[in-house]
């Protein structure tokens, strides 16, 4: 096994175990790994930013003579004037440009993709054209495009929108619609919760697989040794911690 891979296994196992110690309590090992994580992430982002500087600014200007790229550079530099109180107001120009472009880009795209398209997909025919030109409703529950599910989706969208519509008082039929909306919301939140839990579990299994893999002899049994070291450090820290002062009566 190459040395860099074995070293990598030891580092990865150590950092993984240090993060897992948070399940016991907040401790120095966790804080060490946490701060290292932030530091490495920032370093990584800067390196990727440096790559972008070449790809978006330096190469187009030097190789292709696209001098227009200096304009966003100038606007970006205005952002940094926040560090000079006397001219800090210049940074507003940069923010104004970014916010203006962002708003301009958002309006037509939101209307087209997230409002009109969603409404179009919600209001679907309640009958389907079957083989042989037969037109009739379908009740296949596993097909999201069946007539039954089209109706459920329509009721779900309308009732949830009613729940969030506060311009009229929720009384009578509106109250019934809003209550139905709550039931749909609860089912959806429950599903989202279950889905998230399983996604996290899958990550957890991935980490355990790595720990098991790195416990093999070719990696120097990194997991076992570092687990022992971690436990010893935690126990030592627990014994050395000053006991809490007794509560005053």
């Amino acid at each position: 096994m190459p040395f860099d891979v074995v070293l990598g296994a030891w580092v990865a196992v150590g950092l993984t175990l240090f993060i897992f110690t948070f399940l016991y309590e907040d401790n120095p090992l966790f804080k060490l790994a946490e701060h290292l994580y932030v530091g490495i992430s920032v370093g990584y982002t800067i390196v990727k930013g440096y790559e972008l500087v070449f790809r978006l600014i330096y190469d187009p200007i030097v190789d292709e003579g696209e001098w227009s790229r200096l304009i966003p550079v100038g606007i970006g530099i205005l952002m940094l004037t926040r560090y000079v109180p006397k001219i800090a107001w210049l940074s507003r120009i940069a923010f104004a440009f970014v916010v203006g472009v962002g708003s301009g880009l958002a309006i037509p795209r939101l209307i087209s993709s997230y409002i009109l398209k969603q409404v179009e997909d919600t209001v679907r025919p309640l009958v389907s054209v079957l083989e042989g030109g037969l037109i009739r409703p379908t009740f296949d529950i596993l097909n999201p495009e069946s007539s039954l599910n089209s109706l459920v989706i329509l009721i779900g969208v309308m009732s949830v929108l009613f729940y969030f519509f506060f311009s009229i008082e929720h009384r009578g039929p509106v109250k019934v619609a809003a209550r139905t909306g709550i039931f749909f919301l609860m089912l959806s939140f429950g599903a989202a919760f279950g889905y998230t839990v399983m996604a996290r579990m899958s990550l957890l299994i991935g980490r355990f697989r790595d720990l098991i893999e790195f416990a093999r002899p070719e990696y120097g049994r990194a997991t076992l040794w570092l687990l022992a070291v971690t436990i010893v450090i935690l126990v030592t820290a627990a014994f050395r911690r000053p006991s809490a002062p007794p509560e005053q009566e």
Binding site: Y114, Q118, P144, V152, I153, L154, G156, V157, F184, L187
Partner: peptide, 16 residues
């Protein structure tokens, strides 16, 4: 695909 999609759609329309 059905219940969750309908709620997400309604929330998406509201947010948009």
């Amino acid at each position: 695909n059905v219940l969750n999609a309908s709620v997400r759609r309604a929330i998406l329309i509201g947010i948009s």
